[in-house]
Design a protein around this nucleic acid. Structure first.
Lengths: 135, 135
DNA sequence: CGGGATCCAGATGGATACTG
DNA sequence: CAGTATCCATCTGGATCCCG
């Protein structure tokens, strides 16, 4: 943040596939409202259904069930049922699910690095375009 | 793919923030249906509105307008209007937008690495849970 | 405790027509 | 060419009730 040159921007375009690359595949999988939050919580260790429900703030019983089912279907989370009474179910990240946490780390890092810049850009845009309805 | 040991999985949990970390912020921004596809196309260079419309397969005029407006609002894309006739508008990634392409590269890499594993897990789950309605 | 079933509101996005 | 405006179908997710 010192010299007169502005953007350094590493040289490579980084992404250069024809259409999709599979990025949409990932986003279709974890781009929903709750998946990443559940995965982040499970990154800390095994969790029971009720524990997840309390840990992931604001999620409903129904959405936790759906989210965890989809993650299980994709092989990112394993589900273990102990036939006790009352029933006990434990959820845990699989190896694939664990690898996902590294990707989420990259997301978190990018977010932290550009959050302020983006927020400021929004404020400026909203000020210059009053009542545009864009969100 | 040779020895008897299965998952190596680098040691660190990678993500360890209390609730969100800001991952949701990123996904709220680029997790929609079209943003990443537009960014990927713009990673190749400047594009006019009509060029983007042709390049991003399936996008409607309305959605391209909305998508590119939001990207501009967040400071990821710049919009330059040449007051010619007929009008000409060029879109280009900003420095922040360019940095995003590196993140998308990570997404694409993860997708490529686990696409088959996930697809197989789905097939198995769907076979074992007929008519579950989970997607 | 760990769900499944139903109902419903709001958000997202597609199709089409019109405009400077 | 580069949008804007309107209408409408679908999808996502929240609230609630019930069940083994």
């Amino acid at each position: 943040m010192s010299a007169t040159h502005t953007a350094v921007t590493t040289p490579a375009p980084a992404v250069s596939c024809a259409e999709d690359c599979g990025i949409r595949d990932v986003l279709d999988r974890i781009g929903d409202k709750w998946s990443v939050l559940v995965v982040v919580e499970l990154a800390h260790g095994k969790r029971r259904f009720r524990e997840l429900l309390r840990a992931v703030d604001g999620i409903s019983q129904r959405m936790l069930t759906l989210t965890v089912r989809r993650l299980e279907r994709d092989g990112l989370v394993s589900r273990t049922v102990y036939p006790t009474v009352p029933p006990q179910v434990e959820y845990e990240l699989t190896a694939t699910g664990h690898s996902l946490t590294h990707l989420l780390k990259a997301l978190a890092d990018w977010s932290a690095a550009h959050r302020e810049s983006i927020a400021e850009s929004r404020r400026r845009w909203d000020a210059e375009n009053p009542g545009s309805g864009v969100h």
